[in-house]
């Protein structure tokens, strides 16, 4: 039983994808890393961070949601697209409060790792310094909305994998924020520390308590290898 292959191109290179795959998935199998933040294997793609935006036959599309189609020409690693990606990463940094030096997630943070991969040392946009809340009510997990990039990974993981509805978004526009399925706070929800949603966060917004420095800074995932290298060096 051989699955039908779909041939298309990324930056001129011939790729073979499978029916039902997204551009991002097919690229990954071919050892091409398309930068992303809100994507997480196993959950419904959200398509919200827009970092994986590529050009498909000249039109911007998110690689994490766009299915592969025979003969399409995808642009990924171009100067134009890289510029837009850097701008999006910059936007995410300034719209929240990201203090990498104090953050437990430092070194394992996908946003920080992407910034390093793109050579961003400081964002070019002015910091917005929004007021954001903390929720440390749960014995095992805390939420720090200062870092939340509204990627939806926790929301979707709770639904798709844990079979719960612990998280959802409330509000809209710049006021949009993460909310939990309880009148009061995270302690009032049915989340458990073993839930996949508790480890779905790409940044330091949802953190498991009591294991912050189990691996010292300097020896963490992206301290050693840049993000994406695990795909590129497959």
């Amino acid at each position: 039983m051989s699955e039908k292959t779909i041939k298309f191109k990324i930056d001129g290179k011939e790729i073979q994808g499978k029916v039902g795959q997204t551009i991002l998935e097919a690229a990954e199998e071919a050892g091409i890393y398309i930068p992303r933040l809100c994507h997480l294997k196993g959950i419904t793609p959200h398509g919200s961070c827009r970092v994986c935006t590529v050009k498909v036959n000249g039109r911007p599309q998110t690689a994490c949601t766009q299915p592969v189609v025979e003969g399409i020409e995808v642009e990924n690693d171009t100067e134009e697209i890289t510029e837009h990606r850097k701008n999006i990463i910059d936007m995410l940094f300034v719209e929240g409060n990201h203090f990498c030096m104090f953050c437990q997630k430092s070194g394992n943070c996908e946003l920080q790792a992407l910034a390093y991969r793109f050579g961003i040392l400081a964002p070019k946009y002015p910091y917005q310094f929004p007021k954001r809340e903390l929720d440390a009510t749960h014995p095992d997990i805390f939420i720090d909305k200062n870092c939340c990039i509204l990627c939806g990974r926790c929301v979707q993981t709770s639904k798709d994998i844990d079979g719960k509805n612990v998280f959802e978004f409330v509000g809209r526009g710049p006021e949009k924020q993460l909310a939990v399925n309880s009148k009061a706070n995270l302690a009032g929800t049915d989340i458990s520390v073993t839930d996949k949603a508790a480890e779905a966060c790409p940044v330091g917004a949802i953190i498991k308590k009591q294991e912050g420095y189990a691996v010292p800074v300097g020896k963490r995932l992206y301290d050693i290898k840049p993000i994406g290298s695990e795909i590129e060096n497959k």
């Binding site: 398509g47 919200s48 827009r50 936007m91 995410l92 719209e95 509000g171 809209r172 526009g173």
Partner: peptide
């Protein structure tokens, strides 16, 4: 800014900037 749904980064954060 007022009417962005806030789903995606560029519209949510970019319009404010």
């Amino acid at each position: 800014v007022e009417e962005s749904c806030g789903y995606c980064t560029p519209c949510r954060a970019g319009n404010v900037l």
